[in-house]
């Protein structure tokens, strides 16, 4: 097998990288792919918590690169979704515990066994970022419709180019259509025009995300969730399928009435 290694990155913290990694990975596995998620945020691991797997960790990525255990021993099987695995970050070490060459080896080792290897990149542009992108074939940039997040995304696009990742695609997360309509939030067109890269998907702000993170269950498992649907679509596009953008305009009747009479 020769799987694809995709790094999920953003530059700015708090835009939803980890949530996106968990959900895109779960959606890919639900579509029948063999998927492994690597938490490359060493020292500040979180992917395990979002997946609800924190109580299963025995070995981590640093143990693997230091050969304290075999790779298979460190892989945690997801408790809900078949074919989904997690390689957790170490919590008690720092970013220098892994170097880019080790990361590249690890990615190459994993691509033999898996269809998709998703790497959850730490925030920032320092060593942790350089490690996380080392073995990647493709990059997905997560951003939100805010000046600071888009600016950081732009910086990341430039850095990825230097590393040979020429065609990153962007996911615009946490878009709030009612604010876009009011003219108080940048819309997709604005952001794509500015960043000048391909759009992989758009995810609406969704309270379900908070609930699912509380529970440690990716939101894609909830068929009712709008954000979940958006992540399913993103997974489809990663698999090369042409899926139209989620209709974000669908609004609740009350909101529509309010808007028409000018209350919102």
């Amino acid at each position: 097998m020769n799987g694809k290694v995709i790094v999920i990155t953003s530059g700015k913290g708090g835009v939803g990288k980890t949530t996106a990694t968990a959900n895109i990975g779960t959606a890919l596995a639900m579509d029948g792919n063999k998927v492994v998620l690597i938490d490359a945020d060493i020292g500040l691991r979180n992917l395990d918590v979002v997946m609800g797997l924190e109580n299963r960790i025995v070995y981590d990525i640093v143990d693997v690169v230091e050969e304290a255990c075999r790779l298979e021993q460190a892989l945690i099987k997801d408790k809900r979704t078949k074919n989904l695995h997690l390689l957790p970050a170490a919590q008690t070490r720092d970013k220098n515990a892994v170097n880019p060459a080790q990361m590249r080896n690890l990615a190459n080792e994993l691509r033999k066994e898996f269809d998709y290897v998703l790497v959850d990149c730490p925030a920032g542009i320092e060593q942790g970022f350089k490690n996380a992108i080392a073995g990647a074939d493709d990059a997905v940039i997560i951003t939100t419709p805010e000046v600071s997040a888009v600016r950081d995304a732009d910086r990341i696009i430039g850095l990825l180019e230097v590393e040979g990742l020429k065609e990153p695609r962007v996911v615009v997360n946490r878009i709030r259509m009612e604010m876009v309509r009011r003219g108080d939030m940048m819309d997709l067109e604005d952001m794509i025009e500015i960043l000048a890269i391909g759009l992989l998907g758009v995810v609406p702000e969704d309270e379900d995300i908070v609930v699912s993170t509380n529970r440690g269950e990716p939101v894609v498992l909830d068929p009712e969730s709008r954000a979940g649907m958006a992540f399913h679509n993103i997974a489809q596009r990663i698999q090369g399928k042409d899926v139209p953008l989620l209709n974000l305009e669908k609004e609740k009747l009350m909101d529509r009435v309010k808007r028409i009479i000018g209350l919102s």
Binding site: V150, M185, D190, I194
Partner: peptide, 11 residues
Amino acid sequence: SSKNVAKERLQ
């Protein structure tokens, strides 16, 4: 609108 302000500042 604040969207346009954001866009302009960002550019």
